[in-house]
Amino acid sequence: MAATTLHPPASRALRAKRRRSALRTLGFLSPWLIGFAVFFAYPLVSTVYFSFMEYDGFAPPVWVGLKNWSYVFNDYALFWPALRNTLWLVAVMVSLRVLFGIGIGLLITKIKTGAGVYRTLFYLPYLAPPVAATMSFVFLLNPGTGPVNTVLESVGLPAPGWFTDPAWSKPSLTVLALWGIGDLMVIFMAALLDVPKEQYEAAELDGARAWQRFRYVTFPNISPIVLFAVITGVIATMQYYTEPLVAAKVASGVIGGSGQQFEPGYPDKTTLTVPQTIYNLGFQRFDTGAACVVALVLFALAMAFTAILMRRRSGFMSAED
């Protein structure tokens, strides 16, 4: 009987203890929860809301249903070229940056003398401001007066149009991205230097050649870093805005000043990206509803790419990871 009468107070004490623990945990989580609600959840919900509204940023929003979605997918001429360009950059630029970053990292780790100098030289371009770096690249690759084409012509090689040629504009942006490879180089160098030397020694004793050592020793150890580089690269490329916009403006002759006409995506919409269409709709045409539709498409694509890569992580990571 005594045990029966003591059970409810003990149960209440246990519930109170759990409640205090939950409140303590909530208190520690509150900075992140507030930041998540203010900077992610609220903007996302607002974007979904305004995608069904006719809103110019000044007059009260008016419900229009799927009108904005229909306009973006069927009538907005810049959306599909921008989406194709962005997907091309995701597939080509991200792949080449990861491969180039691994290659430069391997090269620097093998250098015995002056490794610090080479590491600095490769990292410095990453520190250059994007606008200044892009303008410099466009001037260097200018098909008429640029020194790159002058050197190519002097040795009898064909001189491309680079940023003025629709066939070369996206490859030129890729070259610019490879020039600023310092961020990935440093990350991969840290991963490569962390590979156990004992595994290399064992592979050499087994007669493994350089490619076999990379495939069976190096890559399995750095595979989590490769996955990280691919995912962050995809997300960053989906938001690619400054470099293609500046390159298109400089190549078309529109560097600055008021009253100048500028064709987005010059030349022939090949440098147009999805973030540029969001700016065009939201801040040039004041069509906030359509801009929110494009923003949601961009968000959905980034989430889809990330989910696919995470589900396929076994292709990047070894079983032990």
Rank of each mutant, 00 (worst) to 15 (best):
N149D: 13
N149W: 12
T150V: 08
V151T: 12
L152H: 08
L152P: 08
L152C: 08
L152D: 07
E153Q: 15
E153D: 12
E153I: 04
S154D: 06
S154M: 11
V155A: 05
V155T: 09
V155H: 05
G156S: 09
L157D: 07
L157A: 15
L157I: 07
P158V: 11
P158A: 10
A159I: 07
A159T: 10
A159L: 07
P160Q: 08
P160I: 08
P160F: 07
G161A: 09
G161D: 05
G161W: 01
W162H: 10
W162N: 10
F163E: 12
T164E: 14
T164W: 06
T164N: 14
T164Y: 05
D165V: 08
P166I: 09
A167T: 14
A167L: 13
A167N: 14
W168P: 08
W168F: 14
S169D: 10
S169G: 14
S169M: 14
K170L: 15
K170P: 06
P171R: 11
P171S: 13
P171E: 11
S172H: 12
S172Q: 12
L173H: 09
L173W: 08
L173D: 10
L173M: 15
L173A: 09
L173I: 14
T174C: 14
T174S: 09
V175G: 10
V175R: 02
V175F: 14
L176P: 02
L176C: 02
L176T: 02
L176W: 03
A177L: 05
L178I: 03
L178Y: 04
L178P: 04
G180W: 00
G180D: 01
G180Y: 00
I181G: 03
I181Y: 03
I181P: 02
I181K: 02
G182L: 00
G182Q: 00
G182S: 00
D183I: 02
D183H: 12
D183P: 02
D183E: 08
L184H: 04
L184E: 04
M185R: 02
M185G: 01
V186C: 00
V186K: 00
V186L: 05
I187S: 05
I187F: 09
I187M: 13
I187P: 05
I187T: 09
F188G: 07
F188A: 06
M189Q: 14
M189R: 10
M189N: 05
M189G: 13
A190Y: 03
A190G: 15
A191K: 07
A191L: 06
A191F: 05
A191V: 06
L192W: 07
L193C: 03
L193D: 13
L193E: 15
L193V: 04
L193H: 05
D194F: 00
V195P: 01
V195D: 01
V195N: 00
V195A: 01
V195Y: 01
P196R: 02
P196G: 01
P196M: 02
P196D: 02
K197N: 04
K197V: 05
